[in-house]
Design a protein around this nucleic acid. Structure first.
Lengths: 245, 245
DNA sequence: GTATCGCTCGATACACTGTATCGACAGAGT
DNA sequence: ACTCTGTCGATACAGTGTATCGAGCGATAC
């Protein structure tokens, strides 16, 4: 009797599943509303602050209500990630013919989005992101990269460059944001790093078995995370430029 | 893990905390035993299969018993990650004077470890890894990179190169393993990718708004993940080599 | 040899989590 | 006016991490 939800809904991604029709209830819902509430929670308390129950509570609705719009919590996270990707799509008008500038723009947009939504890098590189905005962002990366002299008309090389570029973004942002959060938890401020260095680390370095690491920690200027990110980006850009054959 | 409040800031990290003395009980315990059991669970069922209760059960011990050896589940995950780092430290004897070969070796070891422990990339780039083996692996990376002509004696440039190299590893492995797991869940085999491409993706591409992406999907040969990883690595190595000034 | 102390163990409890189930209810169709 | 059908959400289940605290035991003191 109960109309079974088509069991293959597990194989149909949420992006291909229509949202239930709007209904006039004391608290109307939509995927957009749900994702909006989830984003707010995540921005405030991190990903751990997002639970089906809390999102529902923020919308003044029973928890089970959400499952009409989303099959699973992971799908909600997918929607949240895609919402961030929407902030990353570069305005086409500003794409200069200079591919390095184009990639710098994309990388900068991605990093800014990650700083606005510190939980985003935790999702980056997790389950594949195939939402509409993620695909548009991917297309933008490919579009810029396809103008690199050595890559035009060489799809395989293009794919490799795009993968490497994206891998750098994922790894760099994930690492930076995780460190930022760890520092915040331990109450370290950016400038006091060496003074506040944990006694443990100092002890390990004093043992003298990590000479290169010790030199790095001792050595004077610690650049800002932003500068570090951009410096690494230049390395990747140089590597892409160097791809010949 | 739910009550995230008492983060206990400033307390000594687990690496600096001695383990409680061994005790003769029906089921003697040690961090090594605990981590071993946790690794087995994670290798079998993924990170989601690791819970304090399950680890304890595998050791035929009450759950709370573990909290004498570990303050928090996150600390257990730290220990697990460090155990994997132990597999990554390159045998010093095999480090050739060729820095590119050295970095290829390290990258290969890291990838092999990630394939052995598919959950490892999920931890990579999460909370900072400061365990003894992680530090040794970091020192190895720095040691190899310090032999790059342009980097010797330039700590700041060395740091940037090391960060970029590691960011690539984190991003590439995380992405590759996540895709591998998603494919496994959906029962896709590697060769049938295009045929089994989800109708959703095909439909999006057919709309024609992602020409570059469409070309990549259509274009013939999909290289193995390993080849893709190595190709991206070459890009990063080229970028490091190109760092002058 | 006995008494005491201190410490470890783990059962129980608490506050959560994601989600399956299913009775009750409301809106549409006849 | 009366079905019928589909949505809603209270309740329930099986799990999670971990705080608490009484019981019991090993080592020490007398």
């Amino acid at each position: 009797m109960t109309p079974r939800q088509p069991v293959d809904s597990g194989s149909t991604p949420i992006w291909a599943r229509p949202e239930p029709p709007a209904r006039r209830t004391p608290h109307p819902l939509s995927r957009e509303l749900i994702v909006g509430a989830a984003l707010e929670l995540a921005d405030a308390d991190g990903l751990e602050g997002v639970s089906i129950r809390r999102v529902a509570a923020a919308l003044e609705v029973g928890p089970m209500r959400l499952y009409g719009y989303v099959d699973t919590k992971d799908e909600l996270l997918d929607l949240m990630a895609d919402a961030v990707y929407a902030e990353i799509v570069p305005p086409a008008a500003h794409l200069s013919p200079d591919w390095r500038a184009g990639l710098r723009l994309i990388a900068g947009l991605t990093r800014r989005a990650a700083l606005r939504h510190e939980w985003f890098p935790e999702l980056l590189g997790g389950r594949p992101h195939l939402g509409p905005h993620a695909l548009t962002a991917l297309e933008a990366r490919l579009s810029v990269l396809s103008t690199v002299p050595n890559l035009t008309g060489r799809p395989a090389a293009l794919r490799r460059a795009a993968a490497a570029f994206h891998a750098y973004l994922v790894g760099a942002l994930r690492t930076e944001l995780a460190e930022r959060q760890a520092d915040r938890v331990e109450g370290r401020s950016e400038e006091q790093w060496r003074d506040a260095m944990s006694p443990y680390l100092r002890q390990v370095l004093d043992e003298g078995r990590h000479p290169h690491l010790a030199e790095l920690v001792v050595e004077g200027e610690h650049p800002t995370p932003g500068a570090e990110f951009e410096a690494g980006l230049e390395i990747v850009l140089d590597g892409i430029a160097a791809q010949v054959s």
